[in-house]
Design a protein around this nucleic acid. Sequence first.
DNA 1: AGTTGACATGTCAGAAGTTACATAGTGAGG
DNA 2: CCTCACTATGTAACTTCTGACATGTCAACT
Lengths: 205, 205
Amino acid sequence: MRARDGDDSVSVSGSALGYALLSLLTRGPATGYQLTQRMKSPIGHFWTAQHSQIYPELARLAAAGWVEAAEGDGPGPRQKKTYTLTPDGLAALREWLPRPPVVAPRSETVLKAYAANSADPAAMADLYGGIAARQRSLLDEWTREAAMLRDAGHDDPAHPGFGNYAVLLMGIESARSTAAWADWLVTCLRTGRAVGFGDPIPSGA
Amino acid sequence: MRARDGDDSVSVSGSALGYALLSLLTRGPATGYQLTQRMKSPIGHFWTAQHSQIYPELARLAAAGWVEAAEGDGPGPRQKKTYTLTPDGLAALREWLPRPPVVAPRSETVLKAYAANSADPAAMADLYGGIAARQRSLLDEWTREAAMLRDAGHDDPAHPGFGNYAVLLMGIESARSTAAWADWLVTCLRTGRAVGFGDPIPSGA
DNA sequence: AGTTGACATGTCAGAAGTTACATAGTGAGG
DNA sequence: CCTCACTATGTAACTTCTGACATGTCAACT
């Protein structure tokens, strides 16, 4: 499945996680621990991984020659390893990037809406009210973050931080849509009547 | 993990897939094959499963007493089983629905944008141009579908088809956001300059 | 002096999900 | 007559992901 030593001819194919780690390493060398942190924001809103998945994957990437580890003394009993993207790794990433992505959406939030009228409308309204509130708070936070990045020039496609900015914008769009949809759902569930999407929310009536 | 015969006291916890199948069965009895089809639209845009996952899960649900199988002759060598949601199954679903959903977003599309400036801008612009086009065609299709459902009264929260309508609306919102974002990305990548989100797209200039 | 949290790396068991294999009847179209 | 697509149910091998276990240092706070 992945290249072994002296097996250069085989087309080396990585998992999405592998490419995610390579992407993170384009931001500079890092330890597995730092990659775990770096994955949290902003890409974490669209791609997550635990350290228990990251460490073995880094070992595989190193075996494939896509990353290189510099060892040093760590705080614990083991060696601390700082990984760097190799030219081969960058080439692999560049080859993977323009390929059409695998679309595999999975949202428990929407799944629950699918069965919404099997449950108590008031309870479901509360659920989606909470979801809308959380999405709006994320929206606020990310909007402020995006403004800062824009001021720092990250909206320039040539800026190394452009990817972060792009992800943040998608996060904002996604939060906005979800909040608007959840608001509509809440209004439907609370009034018990058909409501047009985007119709004004009847306030305290 | 799941209840066995005569083990009623244990809190029976299901997987998200199990609840997805229960949700599908609120639309009426179905075979595993029919559930596989039923899952494709519209909930398939936010939750998918292969038949190889569905058949064993149905067996587990039956063992837990959440669904009941009526056997009959099938086209192949095996018995055809038509599953029905039991009162216990509906109760379990109703208990699960209002609980806060697990949020686990995963989008290769956004992941690739995160590393966009490691690749050839023209290739990435093509990629996101294609994505925007596909999202717009889905948007068209779903908008027409939603209009039909609305005419059929599915926008009434009491209508059994309300869940389908709600999922479709989220699909529409999601496609709209993604298309707008992809358009912005394409403009950035093609012009090579900072572009405001929502700014008019320079046409053939 | 003791606790908590951050830094740092790993393993293991199990759950969840994908792909391919296996079987077989019916009806439509070429 | 043959092939293809649809209906229908399952298994097996494999990959991916989560959650828990395991270890140990250092700095800050109580």
